[in-house]
């Protein structure tokens, strides 16, 4: 369960990025977060990743109160999340296998476990044949699938995807979204920040619309086209 209670974020330069936001996302939900540039979507992501702390209000993610989380505990909190970036952020000098394995190595997973789990995860994202390939040998869609596999490596309960289809063509975008839906069907909570009107309308999931730091619309089965962006 993710819960934001009256969350306000004001940056040191005075910019009010979020203003009194209340949001509750239940376990296993799929949520699109939409809004224009500067609306506050990125700040919302940063708060959920505990990269920033709220100026006012509380954020709870499962048993964690993010406002009170000590610096030492932040890495352990982040292991509950899987993050996918618009620009993939893969390691160019590592193979597909190594990119996924790295996420497991970071948390101290034993080598034997890594060798067993990585092929299974790559199978889920359909990259079982690309184990030895390097990112530059893959298409944009495939690279994003590697990023997704890496996000899934430590079996997090929540997947946060920041513009996951921003750097890939429409056909591949649909594939990535289908993959996210598949992951959601495994019981994961999925939050997708996006600008892709067509995808939001096509998948008819819960849509949270942010404008000027406020949630102006929150509809299950909502449409981007109807959202007050």
């Amino acid at each position: 369960m993710i819960e934001l209670k009256n969350v306000t974020k004001v940056y040191p330069n005075g910019t009010v990025a979020l203003d009194g936001v209340n949001l509750r996302i239940r376990d296993g939900e799929f949520v699109f977060v939409v809004g224009a540039s500067g609306a506050g979507k990125t700040t919302l992501m940063k708060l959920l990743l505990r990269e920033e702390t709220p100026t006012e209000g509380d954020i709870f993610v499962d048993e964690y109160d993010l406002g009170k989380l000590t610096e030492k505990k932040v890495p352990y909190y982040r292991r509950k999340l899987g993050v996918v970036f618009q620009d993939f952020r893969l390691f160019p000098n590592k193979t597909v296998f190594e990119n996924v394995a790295f996420a497991m190595r970071v948390i101290g997973e034993p080598g034997k476990m890594i060798r067993r789990k990585v092929p299974t995860i790559l199978n889920v994202v359909g990259l079982q044949d690309k184990v030895r390939s390097y990112p530059k040998e893959l298409s944009g869609g495939e690279q994003q699938r590697v990023a997704l596999a890496r996000a899934l490596a430590n079996n997090p309960g929540i997947i946060i995807a920041d513009e996951p289809t921003g750097n890939i063509d429409p056909k591949m975008s649909l594939e990535i979204m289908n993959l996210l839906i598949k992951i959601h069907n495994y019981g994961k909570t999925v939050i997708v920040v996006t600008h892709e009107k067509g995808l939001v309308d096509y998948f008819k999931q819960r849509v949270v619309t942010i404008r000027d730091g406020k949630i102006v619309e929150d509809k299950i089965g909502g449409m981007f086209s109807n959202a007050q962006v």
Partner: peptide, 16 residues
């Protein structure tokens, strides 16, 4: 730097 950013997001501790 990019590797470090990703490491932080996937839960690497400061010491790692």
């Amino acid at each position: 730097r990019n590797e470090i950013t990703v490491m932080r997001y996937i839960g690497a501790t400061g010491s790692f």
